[in-house]
Design a protein around this nucleic acid. Structure first.
Length: 1013
RNA sequence: CGCGGUGUAGCUCAAUCAGGCUAGAGCAUUCGCUUGAUAAGCGAACGAUGAAAGGUUCAACUCCUUCCACCGCGACCA
């Protein structure tokens, strides 16, 4: 025994000590750590560390390189980072190549605005340069912001849809579509300014007041009226249409009716008129038809106009019947379309402002329920016309004049022709009524003239025409089956399948998360029309097609496309604009049709969705092909739900054309960020939460934790209160880690670890809890259930650790001799907990987990441990938890809850303050007595009281239903030990340490011996 | 208007798929304890007519129907 003076009690307490601060100071810590990661090339280290491990690729959907990132963009990227980091820690080689969508209208418009009037005289190459600069600038800022979020990836070399290699690959992929026979050139209506003689994008039109002639016109039915209804047999039947653009009537090829509406045949003497029954009264009144009858007919009306209804029938009955054009010698086909409404707003392509039309609907209905359809002059008309196989007929030239084949009006400008057509119809007796109609009509934003809808030639990718058979080797799927098995529904195996069929088949093999994504995708695919890939713009990948100057033949085949692509590869797609056609074509190329040698270039560019849809094929080639060989599917795509019709869709198309497979094995969608009320966020509403502000005020870590806290499958609310909760949660996690780290001061795992079978039982209980958490969290990461990760870990920290385990072991950690095996036992567990927490939290709390990692005493003096937690793997779960042990402890903790409640009562009654001032008497039931007896000496520590006494029941049979009964709390016996604060009747028995209890006397002896040794 | 999704305490989540004790946690709030995790820790209390209305059933948060709200996509919407 030491002869020195007694130790100063306070100094013999092992208080926590760590450099891991209570305050995170994320604002400074995060950038500092990012810098460190950059300097050590952490991402490169991870790649090397996982070299040869199973590959797992999350393919990044490219954000649009226009504006700065918003909270939704941040969410998307953070969720992706969770995936990449967690797969990495699950042992996969999970490279992350970010990308940016650089082409497209929004950038071009932005540049237009910036260039102003200058643009008109600028060559395309210069405009493209300006666009390129803008995109480069935006993506640079976005990259900086993404990196700030703690996202690791190949930031120094992201894929850019405007890079030479990408543009070249995009062109080649378009060549694949051509090669397989999916591409055709057709016409489609677009906004057209007849003054500027150019197509306009939607964003380039503005709505202004305009007066149009509103006309009701009758089209004679050319079939047998009895087909419609017996009552009409032998009558002269006419279908009434309404339009505000009489000039489109020469292009009329059909009449659309709604299959669900009821139509009426109305008697007007010699003639019978067909209109929607609901509109019949209004139409008849307008046209001055009908007589005043005393009897009420159906439907009765309020204006005293009564007409007789000869028959009524659903629109569906009219399908594919035929009328004659009102004055031209050609048929007008009756078609069924859901777009037909009773408001009249679908009646004309001119009725572009639906809201306006609906307002009108409220005051006075227009239209007849039969829609004049000119496929060359309206969007719906076009769609339904395609569906019914009508020609996309547009007899109007660039200047808005009728072409020579238009009888009576050839050469007339359409707006000038309007009154003439009205007059013409009146003379012919086909016009029932006309009036002036005030409405909002689209005008060119540049020249302010009214625009028209006009079909112009466009490139399409066919959804329904079968692909031509490939000459190449049949592709095998993972089961070794010939891929063309998806043609099994076709008897002739030489016939390929259409893109739509292939897509519908392929999506069944994709894992959709959530599962309803499959239905969603299927609906999208079923309904989507042919893909119009033409854009009349300059900022994009040019459609690599040529036109023979001699015979006007469009020339586009794989060979030519690849030749052009090779040029793009070297010089970027700017070459299309910088070079002449002959320099873009192979030498001595001649028109396959006429042998002509002079060609002009296609001026359309590809839809940007084609660009981004090409991303996986392009990135595989550029980033992975060399190392991993043959193309393979990406493991997962992860985007917002808006991408079903967007990127998921276009990527599927491109991948099917290129590889006959979906580009993804799994598709995960996330919801949208909404405000506290669940409302969508809009800058204009002022309810948007800016990521940079969250970062500035709270740190990226908080934003990341928010992403992990909420179930992203649904809409995710962000608001100050929510972020505050998250910040509190962060503190809790941090403090939990800090407690563990602080109590590991002086603990060297290799030297001081205690084997599990030598541990105290509660320590083994804690390990069992940890083991379960590890298993659950690993599973949650695998299933992309990040909110489950967060809630499991968080609950583990608060309930199992902070409220129970840590609270209980404090006594042991603080008051036992540092090297006492019981203390080492607890420390061993704390070490494992801290280690596991760091690893399990790492994908979410990228910075903090790494900080925990650094403050962890490392096995073997730290040499073996990776220099960052992000190089480590998740802890393994043994999954062989001692269930009996856990059951026993579940019981003990239940008893503890009851004791705590009793302590609270005693506290309220001022019997005790601190729980250590208490002594607890328990009379256990027969059910639990045995268990409690076993833990007799441990109960005081479990309850954190000074004494526990177990007592017998007098009359046990009566209380078999009770588990615990009669818990009594009284003041602890003896004096408070100055060192451990427990009460003991033995305080004062030591001469050397008179203020101390028997446990502390022993601890102090150990400490003094240790010091002497 | 069409397609899809979601509604459980003030907040974030469980249990819902295969209906079954008194709908569970944590946070927040209030109160108390502690002052050896201390701009921390522990406990207790309070807090949900399960969006609403019907229906099926012995039994419904769970299944069915309707409706409302919100979100996304598509619509001749911005």
């Amino acid at each position: 025994m030491s002869t020195e003076t007694p130790l100063e009690l306070k100094k013999t307490i092992n208080l926590p000590k760590t450099n891991f601060g209570q305050k995170a100071n994320l604002g400074q810590m995060e950038p500092a750590r990012l810098k460190k990661w950059t300097e050590m090339n952490l991402y490169g280290m991870i790649r090397r560390a996982r070299e040869g491990a199973p590959l797992f690729i999350l393919h990044d959907g490219p954000p649009y390189a226009n504006a700065d990132i918003h909270i939704g963009t941040a969410l998307n990227k953070i969720l992706k980072d969770f995936v990449v980091k967690s797969r990495t820690m699950l042992g996969f080689d999970a490279p992350y190549v970010p990308g940016y969508d650089c082409h497209g209208l929004p950038i071009e418009l932005y540049v237009d605005k910036k260039l102003g009037a200058k643009k008109a005289n600028m060559p395309a190459v210069s405009i493209r340069r300006a666009c390129r600069e803008h995109a480069a600038d935006a993506l640079k800022r976005q990259t900086r912001d993404f990196q700030r979020l703690g996202i690791l990836g190949l930031w120094e070399n992201p894929y850019l849809t405007m890079s030479n290699s990408y543009e070249a690959e995009t062109a080649r992929l378009f060549g694949r579509f051509i090669e397989r026979g999916y591409v055709y050139k057709g016409a489609r209506p677009v906004y057209w300014c007849i003054h500027d003689q150019t197509a306009l994008a939607e964003a380039e039109v503005e709505y202004r007041e305009h007066t149009s002639p509103s006309v009701y016109v009758k089209f004679p039915f050319s079939g047998d009226p009895a087909q419609i209804d017996e009552a009409l047999a032998g009558r002269k039947v006419f279908f009434l249409i309404w339009t505000t653009t009489p000039w489109t009537l020469p292009a009329n090829l059909g009449i659309a009716v709604n299959p669900n509406f009821e139509y009426a045949a109305i008697d007007n003497g010699d003639e019978v008129y067909i209109v929607a029954i609901e509109l019949a009264t209004d139409v008849m009144r307008k046209c001055g038809i009908g007589k005043v009858f005393p009897q009420a007919f159906d439907p009765p009306n309020d204006a005293g106009v009564v007409h007789s209804v000869l028959a009524r029938f659903p629109g569906s009955k009219l399908d594919r019947l035929e009328c004659r054009h009102a004055w031209l010698d050609r048929p007008s086909l009756l078609m069924l379309g859901e777009h037909v409404t009773l408001g009249g707003e679908a009646d004309a392509e001119t009725e572009l402002d639906v809201k306006e039309a609906r307002d009108k609907k409220a005051t006075g209905k227009a239209g007849t329920g039969l829609v004049h359809t000119a496929p060359g002059h309206g969007h719906d008309d076009f769609v339904i016309g395609k569906q019914y196989g009508l020609e996309i007929y547009c007899p109007v030239d660039n200047a808005g004049r009728f072409t020579p084949d238009v009888e009576y009006f050839a050469g007339e400008g359409v707006f000038e022709a309007n009154p003439k057509i009205v007059e013409f119809m009146r003379e012919r007796g086909v016009l029932l009524f006309s009036e002036n109609y005030e409405h909002r009509y689209p005008h060119c934003w540049r020249c302010k003239n009214p625009v028209i809808f006009r079909a112009t030639p466009q490139w399409f990718i066919a959804m329904d025409s079968a692909a031509t058979k490939e000459a190449s080797q049949p592709e095998l799927d993972e089961d070794g089956r010939v891929r063309s098995n998806y043609t099994e529904n076709f008897t002739d195996s030489e016939v390929g399948v259409s893109l739509r069929e292939a897509a519908l088949h392929e999506i069944e093999r994709v894992e959709w998360i959530p599962a309803w994504g499959f239905d969603r995708m299927r609906n999208m695919l079923k309904g989507r029309p042919d893909w119009c890939v033409s854009r009349q713009r300059v900022w994009g990948v040019p459609i690599p097609a040529f036109y023979c100057n001699a015979c006007n033949e469009a020339v586009a085949d794989k060979g030519i496309v690849n030749h052009v692509a090779d040029i793009f590869e070297k010089e970027s797609a700017d070459a299309w604009y910088a070079k002449d056609a002959r320099d873009l074509l192979p030498e001595n190329f001649k028109c396959p049709k006429c042998g002509g040698e002079e060609f002009s270039k296609e001026t359309d560019i590809l839809d940007v969705w084609f660009d981004s849809g090409s991303s996986w094929a392009a990135t595989w080639k550029e980033y992975f092909a060399e190392k991993f060989g043959e193309w393979q599917q990406a493991d997962v795509y992860m985007e917002g739900g808006d991408q079903y019709r967007g990127w998921f869709n276009s990527s599927l198309m491109v991948s099917l054309a290129a590889h006959d497979r979906a580009p993804y094995k799994a598709v995960v969608t996330h919801g949208w960020t909404v405000d506290a009320q669940g409302k969508a966020m809009h800058k204009s509403l002022g309810n948007a939460v800016a990521p940079e502000e969250v970062i500035k005020e709270s740190g990226a870590e908080i934003l990341r934790l928010w992403c992990a806290s909420t179930d992203y499958h649904e809409d995710m609310r962000v608001a100050p209160e929510i972020l505050q909760r998250i910040t509190d949660g962060y503190r809790k996690l941090r403090n939990t880690a800090r407690f563990a780290l602080g109590n590991l001061h002086g603990f060297e795992p290799a030297r001081d670890s205690v084997a599990e079978d030598e541990m105290l039982e509660i320590d083994r209980w804690a390990l069992a809890e940890l083991d379960e958490v590890v298993a659950l969290v690993r599973a949650a990461y695998k299933a992309y259930e990040f909110h489950a990760v967060f809630h499991r870990l968080y609950n583990f920290c608060t309930v199992a650790l902070s409220a129970r385990y840590f609270d209980i072991i404090k006594d042991r950690l603080y008051t036992f001799a540092p090297r006492n095996i019981a203390r080492r036992s607890a420390q061993t567990v704390l070490y494992k907990i801290a280690d596991a927490l760091a690893r399990l939290l790492a994908p979410v709390l990228v910075f903090t987990a790494d900080e925990i990692w650094e403050n962890l005493p490392q096995v073997g003096g730290g040499d073996e441990a990776p220099s960052s937690v992000h190089l480590a793997t998740f802890p393994e779960s043994t999954n062989v938890q001692d269930m009996e042990l856990r059951t026993r402890w579940a019981l003990l903790f239940r008893l503890r809850d009851e004791v705590l409640a009793k302590l609270e009562e005693a506290r309220a009654a001022k019997v005790i303050g601190s729980s250590l001032e208490a002594k607890v008497r328990i009379r256990p039931s027969a059910l639990v007595r045995k268990t409690l007896e076993k833990y007799k000496d441990d109960l005081r520590y479990i309850f954190i009281v000074s004494q526990v006494e177990l007592r017998e029941w007098m009359d046990e049979p009566e209380v078999h239903s009770l588990i615990f009964e009669d818990i009594q709390v009284e003041r602890a016996e003896g004096e408070k030990c100055e060192r451990c604060w427990n009460y003991s009747v033995h305080v004062g028995e030591s001469e050397r340490y008179p203020a101390v209890c028997e446990r502390c006397v022993e601890a102090l002896r150990e400490i003094e011996e240790g010091a002497a040794a």
